[in-house]
Computed example of a mutant assay.
Amino acid sequence: MAVFTPVTLNDLNSWIDQFPLGKALAIKGIASGIENSNFFITTETGEYVLTIFENLSFEQLPFYLKLMRHLADHGVLVPAPVANADGELVVALHGKPASIVSKLEGSSQMEPQASHCAEVGRMLARMHLAGKDFPLHQKNLRALDWWHATTPKVLPFISDELQHLLRAEVHFQDAFDSTPVYRALPRGPIHADLFRNNVMFVGERLTGFFDFYFAGCDTWIFDVAVTVNDWCINITTGELDIVRVLAMLNAYHEVRPFSKEEAIAWQPMLRAAALRFWLSRLYDYYQPRDAEMLTPHDPAHFERILRLRESLPVPPLPENL
């Protein structure tokens, strides 16, 4: 993540003694993404990840951290949050909410094959089912309401053609959101940001999903669409790789079969997933925040993906094969 709030080893050692982790031995900022300040830390008991939350509040954070704990307790591979001596998962650091979670084994697979996509699809379905009885509720904070609030903030910076594309897609999603099909979609807690860099592998073995700080309650098929739009594409053109798409969808379907409503919603949700990340990248590109290690992403990538999902047919969900 971009480092908005620097933390030194001395800062860390004056704070970490409230956790059962021993003395901090090393800290290193993580320079990818643009939302929170993340650090790898090494202590006398092992390796962990420290996150300082730049946008989320103390009141919002229990949802994410308790969700991770709930999923871990149900056999989903996710980082385990560490509580302090008072049992708190969120503690102030430099006046901002912060947490520590276990570090996952392995590394991100940035050139996934069909076997990797199948592993991700299978674990994503397990995650959705495991979250069905999670007692807390928080809506997806980057869904339709956020699209409406953010669109006017980026329109002055983009061409007339792009303004038309953005307005038209938001209008389409508004209309689809009001349909009986959309209202019937299965839903619950979702990751909402399950890109290649948020999953760890050792070889072809998936070792965990992480970075749950965009999670919220939304339709499961939207979560699948977000994942397919990153894992199953030609990264240069945005075109779907059919082999990888089918590997992910079939593996997911074996664990949690898709519904008939999800089959109808599939292409609209691929469009919605592309819109969500195009809009967020536009906002981060044109309205950047100060950061020590800021790496904004190119908005044109998801513009291309949105145009492709609008204009070309997509592989159907397994129940239609």
Rank of each mutant, 00 (worst) to 15 (best):
P20H: 03
D73V: 03
K28D: 15
A192H: 05
T207Y: 01
W266T: 10
L67K: 04
Q60P: 11
V170F: 05
E303P: 06
Y182F: 15
A118K: 01
P257K: 05
V82L: 00
L77Y: 09
S14C: 04
P257L: 01
T42K: 10
S115L: 12
A72P: 04
G33P: 08
F176H: 12
N13D: 14
P79D: 09
Y182N: 10
D223T: 13
H171N: 12
E44V: 02
V243N: 15
V49E: 07
V49C: 06
L270S: 00
R167T: 14
P152G: 05
A215S: 11
L9Q: 03
R183Q: 15
I158P: 00
E111T: 10
C117T: 12
L282R: 04
Q113A: 12
F302L: 11
D193K: 07
F212A: 01
P20E: 06
A98E: 11
I34C: 05
A184G: 07
E119P: 01
D160F: 08
G87M: 01
L166W: 07
L25Q: 14
A272R: 11
A80L: 15
Q267D: 05
M269R: 02
P6Q: 07
A274M: 02
W146T: 02
Y285Q: 15
G203N: 13
G22I: 13
G75Q: 09
G238D: 10
Q109Y: 06
L21H: 02
T8S: 14
M127L: 15
N198M: 04
H128A: 03
N55T: 15
E111A: 00
F53A: 10
E88D: 12
I16N: 02
L129D: 14
D211P: 05
Y286P: 05
R126M: 14
T5M: 02
K28A: 10
E161Y: 06
D145R: 13
P6F: 00
L166Q: 08
R126S: 09
H116T: 10
I27T: 06
N38A: 05
F258V: 13
Q287M: 11
T237V: 01
E59I: 11
I27S: 03
V202N: 12
Y285M: 13
E111Y: 09
R276P: 08
V245R: 02
V314A: 06
L12R: 09
V199Y: 01
F53N: 07
S159M: 07
K153V: 09
I52A: 01
K260H: 11
E47H: 05
M110G: 00
L141H: 06
T51L: 04
F39Y: 15
I235W: 00
R187S: 14
S32Y: 14
E319M: 15
L270K: 04
Q113H: 09
H128W: 06
V224S: 03
A26E: 14
E310F: 12
D174I: 02
W278P: 13
R187N: 15
H191D: 09
L294M: 13
P257S: 05
C117Q: 10
A31K: 07
E44A: 06
D241L: 00
I305G: 03
A272H: 06
G46E: 11
E261A: 15
I30A: 03
P6L: 08
P180T: 12
L67C: 09
